[in-house]
Design a protein around this nucleic acid. Sequence first.
DNA 1: TAGATATTTAGCCAATCATCTAAATACAAA
DNA 2: TTTGTATTTAGATGATTGGCTAAATATCTA
Lengths: 95, 95
Amino acid sequence: MENSLTQTLQALADPTRRKILQMLGERNLSAGDIGAAFDMKAPSISHHLTVLKNAGLVLAERQGQNIVYSLNTTVMQEFMQEMRQLFRVGENGNA
Amino acid sequence: MENSLTQTLQALADPTRRKILQMLGERNLSAGDIGAAFDMKAPSISHHLTVLKNAGLVLAERQGQNIVYSLNTTVMQEFMQEMRQLFRVGENGNA
DNA sequence: TAGATATTTAGCCAATCATCTAAATACAAA
DNA sequence: TTTGTATTTAGATGATTGGCTAAATATCTA
């Protein structure tokens, strides 16, 4: 769970992973729930979840037989802040 | 110059390309000026510029012997808007 | 404990990516 | 028009990625 800007952007640069984030924005979901929404085998979904987890964008918690994923909104906010800085162009009087 | 969200995020998911954007935030620069800031051969820089151009993040204009690159701030704004939407989580009464 | 379900880990493979060298193109200047 | 400078295009190569199958791990239930 390193969490560099590059890692976050790489994680976001995949439509499957962005859709997962959107789904988790509605409610927390198990890996199985998430997988059911995609035409993809379970290990592939698991891989995407690992990428999101390593980027710090989601949190995972085991609940019995399931592992339930949720958004890490803190990290998402921090990421948006970094992007604003990157795009805050040539303001030579900035903070 | 297709310009999907995936393409934009892929373009941003590389430190060299983000540094180029930052440099262009200060002032417009030729390919050579940009290349001088990196320990990388000219064709590699040219490749990164092409990626940024295809993502719509920068504009290119020939000026005599040089090709001068500049930010496409419109596309950058649109991208930030899309990111805000992606991260505007579970607001079931949103616009 | 044995079997079923949920998920991950390991390892393979094709496609994409970032870099390089060599060559081509575009323009300027002598 | 020849030479030099700036930049891109073409093509090769090693690394990374995203998908798969098979197998391992964890938990629940009979």
